[in-house]
């Protein structure tokens, strides 16, 4: 009777995709790697599009181990940043149209990252998903893994610790 009608699907998508773009698009290094982030509901999948400059061992050839580490780290940071804004976003306390390059959600900073290389990264697209294992007021612990052809056979995984930003958003100051 008094129940509110559900939001139109386009409104929901625009809000969520707008917030995700604000998190991802402003970071030059994400463009340098050729990374994209896809969203299904609140689940994010990072995509590393293959490019020749990502190669670290031309003889195999295999992706550079540093690129793999960077791909995992970026995925973990975006996942954590996304988790931090999700509630505010859905409660409409955060307006994605107010987010821009200079006024973006403040991203967590990496304290440390421990990468486990399981097999060589092949010269093709790679995918990654992260899971926030522990999220406190001061720091968070995140697990992240990446795969290529087969979701059940990751080629690398990592655990990292990240400082939580002190305020929700960073203003232009």
């Amino acid at each position: 009777m008094t129940r509110k009608p559900p939001e139109p699907v386009q409104v929901v998508k625009q809000r969520r995709d707008g917030a995700l773009r604000a998190l991802v698009d402003g970071i030059p290094y994400i463009r340098f790697l050729g990374m994209e982030v896809e969203r299904r509901g609140d689940e994010l999948t990072a995509l590393l599009r293959y490019a020749d400059h990502l190669i670290g061992d031309p003889r195999l050839p295999a992706l550079h181990g540093g690129v793999t580490a960077a791909f995992l780290e970026v995925t973990a940071i975006i996942e954590l940043g996304w988790t931090m804004i999700w509630e505010d976003l859905e409660a409409k306390r955060l307006d994605p149209s107010s987010l821009s390059l200079q006024h973006m959600p403040r991203l967590p900073r990496t304290i440390d990252l421990s990468v486990d290389y399981l097999r060589p990264g092949l010269p093709r697209d790679a995918y990654a998903r992260a899971r926030v294992i522990r999220s406190g007021r001061r720091y968070a612990s995140v697990f992240v893994e990446c795969w290529q052809d087969n979701r059940a056979r990751p080629f690398a995984q990592a655990t990292g610790h990240f400082t939580m930003p002190t305020e929700g958003h960073r203003g232009p100051q």
């Binding site: 970071i27 030059p28 340098f32 181990g65 580490a69 960077a70 780290e73």
Partner: peptide, 27 residues
Amino acid sequence: DARLVGDPVTGVIHGGAVSTLLDTCSG
């Protein structure tokens, strides 16, 4: 290099690029 920046507000290089440098140098 501006292409490697991880925080466009401060201009600080992304940790990922530093990881790649460390991994390469270690190898």
